[in-house]
Design a binder for these strands. Structure first.
Length: 514
RNA sequence: GACCCGGUAGCUCAGUUGGCUAGAGCAACUGACUUUUAAUCAGUAGGUCCUGGGUUCGAGUCCCAGCCGGGUCACCA
């Protein structure tokens, strides 16, 4: 684009708006107002008018009380000595009727300098038009903000039979919508609604945990050593300390340090960062909810997750079903539970525990798993599960009792030394929750870290590094604890039926422009 | 990282076998219209055809390289 103010080189549509800006100032109209005192949101104006109609308290000419509304102009129909517009605010849109005789010559002529996208304040009584739409008859209008760049507004048609909203020539380029989320939000009320839902869901998660006696805490984003998940970190440097720092990949090890300290129920809503590829289920910066509760195990936590999800659905949606990717998901506790190894054994027709590593590897190659370099027994089982069982987990399903090598922070299963007490909750075929009976034996924890280190030496770059300070904390004594991590963005994909994680993140990661 | 698809006006898109001055709808501008609602009618203006090379008398179109995006897969306990 051009140097700002260099009007000569602006494209025609931008130039025209700059010229109107100048014309407004010449008329003594301030194009960027300081404030406006609206008396009602647009949806309240409509509701109040309809109520007045019902109680027959309108004036003889069918007008309600005068109102003041503020919003963005999203449609305009000029009729010579009158004009209709729709003005949109956070609550909805409302039609405004401008008449030369009601506004006076000067105020009406000044409307020529208004554009789609401008923010306007309008004052006047509501009435119902011949075609039946509740409308404000403007007696005064105020320019609140002049828009200097045309918004990609489509034309909105309401289907007469179904009442459906049909948008013509809208703003559909995905790249442009993500890069200019402000414009995407401005022209798509349904996108604004997705993010309102996001906010309500996170609020409901917090209120649920608060109600259970949990304490919301904040732990470091910048960490001297990363841990709590198997992932590549972002690396940075603190200059004054001359020290390498990592952006957290999980909150787990810090939150469990707090359990050691006696804060027996803690949770954190956090941004975590993983230096990995992007996909419709992965954004390098994402929102995680983790909580830890002393004196509970993974059974207790599965029950808590069930209650939490029902609370969120009841609070936010008022129903216990979701439609995601064309599937109806019914939430009814208790959710289905399947053993990871048991279900894989069923799928393979052989007991997984009886199979050698070589047999597992051969099976994995059979079903087309790629990149098995350095994969240990646990990873082979996990890959096979991902290939053979995971796609069938549409209804909410707890997958439980994972192999030990896959879960270096989970407590050994009380009935089977090969397994851990762990669960993952799958919804719509996607992993949303991950929890376990937390490993609190520092000697076992050190051994697990060390076997991770040998996996790392064998080529598994995601294996966990040893965290000596965390082991020291466990040595002081961590009570029996159940803990859970939740992929908040993924859950929101389910709640709002969006197919990409980018559609539930306001500003998803993209390569920079230019 | 692999494969497929795409990038043309502010927005949404056409553009044939390579051929004259690159088109349409919406938005914009001028004019008409005081209950319209995808308002309507008449007219006008608006382009780095993603970038850089190449082939050709001639490239939006064909070839090569690159950039950016979307989708699918891989990666992702």
């Amino acid at each position: 684009m051009t140097v700002s103010g260099d009007v000569e080189e602006l494209s025609q549509v931008l130039r025209v708006r700059r010229e109107k800006l100048t014309a407004l100032r010449d008329k003594g109209i301030e194009p960027f107002a300081y404030s406006f005192d609206a008396t009602a949101a647009t949806n309240e104006v409509i509701a109040a008018f309809e109520e007045a109609e019902g109680s027959a308290s309108l004036s003889e000419s069918g007008q309600g009380e005068s109102v003041r509304i503020a919003g963005r102009v999203v449609s305009w129909r000029d009729m010579g000595k009158s004009a209709f517009a729709h003005v949109e605010d956070a609550s909805g849109r409302l039609q405004v009727y401008f008449r030369k005789d009601a506004l006076g010559e000067e105020a009406f002529e000044s409307l020529d300098l208004a554009d789609l996208g401008d923010w306007l304040g309008v004052e006047g009584p509501a009435f119902r038009t011949r075609t039946g739409e509740v409308t404000v008859r403007a007696e005064r209008w105020t320019l609140l903000t002049k828009s200097l760049r045309p918004l990609p507004l489509g034309k909105v048609e309401t289907d007469a039979e179904t009442g459906e909203r049909i948008v013509h020539s809208g703003f559909t380029d995905q790249e442009a919508r993500y890069r200019q989320r402000y414009a995407d939000l401005a022209v798509h009320p349904e996108v604004r609604e997705v993010f309102r839902t996001r906010s309500r869901v996170i609020s409901a998660l917090r209120s649920f945990l608060d109600g259970e006696g949990f304490l919301e805490v904040e732990t470091p984003v910048l960490q001297p050593l990363y841990g709590g998940a198997a992932a590549e970190p972002f690396v940075t440097t603190h200059k004054a300390l001359d020290q390498t720092m990592y952006l957290r990949i999980a909150d787990e090890l810090y939150l469990k340090r707090l359990i050691v300290g006696g804060l027996d129920r803690v949770y954190e809503v956090s941004k975590d960062f993983r230096n990995e590829g992007l996909s419709r289920f992965h954004n390098p910066e994402f929102t995680m909810l983790e909580w830890y509760q002393a004196f509970t195990d993974y059974e207790d936590q599965m029950a808590l997750v069930e209650r939490m999800l029902l609370h969120v659905l009841d609070t936010v949606l008022g129903r216990r079903t979701l439609t995601y990717a064309g599937n109806e998901l019914v939430f009814e506790a208790p959710f289905r539970r399947i053993g990871l190894v048991a279900s894989l054994s069923d799928a393979l027709g052989t007991d997984v525990h009886e199979m050698s590593d070589a047999q597992l590897r051969a099976k994995a190659e059979d079903v087309g798993v790629q990149d098995l370099k350095g994969a240990g027994r646990g990873k082979l089982i996990d890959k096979l599960f991902g290939e053979l069982v995971e796609p069938m987990l549409v209804e909410p399903t707890f997958v439980i009792d994972h192999p030990k090598e896959l879960s270096p922070l989970a407590k050994q299963h009380r009935g089977d030394a090969r397994l851990t007490e762990r669960f993952e909750l799958y919804i719509g075929g996607v992993e949303i929750f991950n929890g376990f009976s937390e490993l609190n034996d520092p000697i076992d924890q050190r051994a697990r870290f060390e076997s991770q280190a040998s996996l790392r030496a064998a080529g598994d770059e995601e294996a966990h590094p040893v965290d000596e300070d965390y082991i020291r904390a466990l040595e002081y004594g961590m009570p029996p604890t159940g803990g859970v991590g939740m992929g908040v963005d993924r859950f929101l994909m389910m709640v709002t039926d969006q197919s990409s994680i980018r559609d539930v993140i306001l500003f998803p990661m993209l390569r920079t422009e230019d």
